[in-house]
Design a protein around this nucleic acid. Structure first.
Length: 140
DNA sequence: GTTCTCACA
DNA sequence: TGTGAGTA
């Protein structure tokens, strides 16, 4: 089975521009009929990997390195390389989450501090006692 | 319809 | 990590 650039673009919800972009970056090398690109099932499988990798935040360069490892026959080695990239990305994403959580905490605290008195009357903060109430009574 | 290139965010 | 416009 073969596919045109529009076939795969439609199937994966990307533009034909993106497909050529991936090709330019060396992630995929479709055959040519004249000047027109002809994508094989193998190209389609690689594209699926590209999209999945992109969706979890890997760079195209990282995806290419994983794809390149598939030129080896050693499946164990392929998996080792992929896992290496996944772990690294996982650590980065978790770090991002920690920063986001910290920002949320700071913003919530600031809001409570600045507008707490007004907001509290109508919408009590979570927990049985608000921070403001604790401050007023001096208890914890 | 598909290709390529250049500018642009 | 792509998009838009213009072209052949």
């Amino acid at each position: 089975m073969t596919y045109t650039i529009t076939d795969l673009a439609n199937e994966f919800g990307i533009t034909h521009r993106a497909l050529r972009f991936y090709e330019e970056k060396g992630l995929i090398e479709p055959a040519r009929k004249g000047q027109t690109r002809i994508y094989s099932d193998r190209d389609r499988t690689r594209l699926r990997l590209i999209i999945n990798g992109r969706d979890v935040g890997l760079t195209l360069y990282e995806i290419r390195q994983i794809l390149d490892s598939y030129r080896k026959d050693d499946v164990t080695e392929q998996n080792r390389i992929a896992v290496e990239f996944f772990r690294r990305r996982l650590a980065a994403v978790k770090e991002q989450r920690a920063r986001v959580d910290d920002q949320i905490d700071r913003l919530e605290e600031a809001c409570e501090r600045l507008a707490g008195e007004d907001i509290e009357a109508s919408a009590p903060r979570r927990g049985s006692r608000s921070r403001q109430a604790e401050l007023r009574t001096g208890t914890h």
